[in-house]
Design a protein around this nucleic acid. Structure first.
Lengths: 243, 243
DNA sequence: ATTGTCTAAATCGTCAACAATTTTGTAGAA
DNA sequence: TTCTACAAAATTGTTGACGATTTAGACAAT
């Protein structure tokens, strides 16, 4: 049984490191957009919120900054990342470059057990979609890609892709269409078919198509003339003063 | 007590963060093996050495740990990373997966200016080799790969590969053959030819061959029969006491 | 001689206070 | 009004100290 072990098990298993907890908490808040892109993150406030010292918040900031989920500005503080359109394009381009290789490898090392593993995951995706659980669907969609990375057996790739997928999630949360067309689970089905074909070129091509499709579903227009567009935020004409 | 060299450049002009300086200093020491794999890094000693507080050393540790150049063990401290053989294999496998894509992209976007840029770099590599400057040759060899990554125009790939190349450098420093056969500059010439062909498959194949060659030049045997083999480690017969 | 236990030293983890910097608010002059 | 200068507040950066944990050494017991 090739069950994915929980890595980084802490001694005792009862005590979860507050460090990790805070990271996960903030990560979730950012991806849920409870912390909006650009928002200032004040050390002391967060320290009080989590009942820890500022030093710990600071360490967490370094982690998040390394994953490009927040920006750290010297003497100014931390801000939730605002991935630009160019960044978004680059991230998906990078993913395509890497995940093409992943698809190639998985396609050529497919076994029945692995196929079953992927199918099982797809079932969960379908279930979430059927239940209308949009949030779960997004998470599972990311985990699908992570699962394929894990099947390459290469921890380096797996870890890097994990970060890249988180970053993608922020991008998707920021640029997704108002009416989310979650057809990705259908695309994942097609991806599985391609992987089962055993042909690396077919698998890679399908992966490329899929990632391009995700990117193309985003609303990557240029809504930023330089500063924050208050007019659209408040639904008013820029110059009208209503007092 | 090694005195930190003061590069007068940042003193007069804008203040360069000592943070960055310390990272680079430690990075260099690790790659030069002045800090040997497994060596304990004591916060207070380093803080005194660099005339900074422990907090800053701690932050630097987080950076280095993120790049897998040191290991951070809770309540135990920081240790210079000792990449295992499996890790070494995984790193080069990951690089091949990524740099294949890089080679493909560079091959299909080649211009005269870019070709000249690569040629210029190769000249520097040849010069270093001709001068017998082994250390410079290793650095330039890494920068060659980084240059190709940069030519993809994808910052995500560039940054990731930069870290991976640093990690590779540590691996090479740890496992390189006693008599270093630096034929990589010749291989880089062949790589350029492949890139100039414009055929992505040829370029990718040549890149794979090159990275495999680097890996195969390492001495990746398994010196661990289960327990630590003190005899081979210390080059003595198990029972002989020589001091 | 090896193992186990205890004490002391070394080192990490945490915190709260202080200094430096940036941001905000206010008042005055063109 | 609009801009500038200055003062006050908020926030980050840094330091040193204190407690917790781990390591090393001494010593007794098997």
């Amino acid at each position: 049984m090739a069950k994915a072990e929980e890595t980084g098990s802490y001694k005792g298993s009862g005590k979860l490191r507050p460090e990790e907890m805070i990271y996960q908490e903030m990560l979730g808040a950012i991806l849920d957009r409870r912390l909006e892109p650009g928002m200032k993150l004040i050390e002391e406030d967060l320290a009080k919120t989590f009942s820890v010292s500022r030093a710990r918040i600071r360490a967490t900031f370094l982690q998040l900054a390394h994953d490009k989920l927040i920006n750290l500005v010297p003497n100014r503080g931390a801000f939730v990342a605002e991935p630009t359109i160019d960044e978004a394009i680059e991230v998906f381009s990078a993913r395509r470059m890497i995940e093409d290789g992943v698809a190639r490898k998985v396609a050529t090392t497919m076994t029945d057990a692995r196929a079953a593993q992927i199918k099982h995951h797809l079932d969960r995706e379908h279930a979430a979609h059927h239940d209308g659980d949009h949030r779960a669907a997004i998470i599972l969609s990311g985990e699908f890609h992570l699962l394929l990375a894990r099947l390459t057996g290469n921890l380096v790739i797996e870890e890097f892709l994990e970060r890249l997928i988180l970053r993608s999630s922020l991008i998707i949360a920021m640029y997704e269409s108002p009416q989310p067309v979650d057809c990705s689970h259908t695309e994942h089905d097609r991806l599985l078919s391609a992987l089962l074909s055993g042909d690396p070129d077919i698998a890679a091509a399908e992966m490329s198509r899929h990632l391009d499709a995700i990117r193309d579903r985003l609303q990557l227009q240029r809504p930023k003339p330089g500063k924050t567009d208050f007019a659209s935020i408040f639904g008013r004409a820029p110059k009208s003063e209503a007092s």
